[in-house]
Amino acid sequence: MSHRRKVGPVERSEIVRANASMATRVLGMPAAPVPDGGYALRVLRTRGRHSGADRDTPIGVVGHDGAHYLVSPEDTRDWVRNLDADPRCTLLAADAASAGTAVRPDPDAAAAAVRTYLRALDMPWARQAFPVGPDSATAEVRAHMPPISVFRIDPAR
């Protein structure tokens, strides 16, 4: 009997390997600025909600209205559940580490961040994971949350 969890057609172990490979690549790149209306790649470090161990996930950080946001098409992703359990996190690149606190924004800000993220994405497969598109109205995006999860990353004090 296998204890590997299936995530759609891909086994969890495959996702873990792909994430580790991508995280290594991101950590080898200098930190590009997160432009307002765009995104930049980082590694999100969270604390595992069960293990308490550091968990690294490659992620696109979107800039919207002067703030940085993390967006997920599914609220069941491990990094989302880890941030819900402990909102302290760090965004990493080869030459930068930025500690922060993940905060769930109000519904309008969350929907606006989703729209910005989808417009900035240049990967059709990533867009297809969302139940809405880049040209969706704010009200339409709000109607599809959850399962979409959004966090604003406030700098640590």
Rank of each mutant, 00 (worst) to 15 (best):
D84Y: 03
A96H: 15
D106W: 03
T101L: 07
P105F: 02
P107V: 03
H50F: 14
D54T: 00
P58C: 09
D106Q: 13
A23V: 12
P131N: 01
T24F: 08
V26A: 08
D65P: 03
D86M: 03
H64E: 11
G133W: 05
V62K: 10
G60N: 15
R12T: 08
D106V: 11
V61N: 06
I59R: 10
D135M: 04
G52L: 07
W79A: 08
A20G: 03
G37W: 09
T57F: 12
R17A: 15
R49Q: 08
A93I: 02
A20D: 12
D108R: 14
D75F: 02
R25D: 11
E11P: 14
V71Y: 09
R127D: 00
R77A: 07
P134F: 01
A112H: 09
L70Q: 04
T76S: 10
E14S: 15
V61G: 00
R42P: 12
P58F: 04
D36I: 01
E14R: 14
A85L: 02
R17Y: 09
A31P: 14
V62G: 01
A53T: 09
L70T: 12
M29G: 04
G48I: 01
A53R: 15
A137P: 12
I15M: 10
P124K: 07
S98R: 09
L91P: 14
A120H: 08
G37K: 08
D84H: 02
S21E: 13
P107D: 06
D75R: 04
S13K: 15
A112S: 12
D135A: 11
H68C: 07
D56I: 01
S13Y: 01
A102K: 04
P131M: 05
A109E: 12
T101N: 08
D75V: 00
D78T: 09
V62R: 02
R55Y: 10
S13C: 10
A85P: 03
P131C: 05
T57W: 14
V62N: 03
P105G: 02
A111T: 06
D75C: 06
G60Q: 12
M123G: 06
D108N: 06
G52N: 13
H64S: 08
V132T: 06
V114M: 01
E14C: 07
L121P: 05
G66V: 01
P87C: 05
V61D: 00
A112D: 06
G52E: 10
L92P: 04
G52D: 10
A32F: 12
L121K: 11
S98F: 12
R88F: 00
G38N: 07
L44S: 02
R88P: 04
M22A: 11
A32Y: 05
V16H: 06
L41C: 03
S21A: 13
C89E: 03
L27R: 14
A20N: 11
T24A: 13
Y69H: 01
P73K: 04
M29P: 09
D108P: 03
D78E: 11
R25T: 15
A18Y: 07
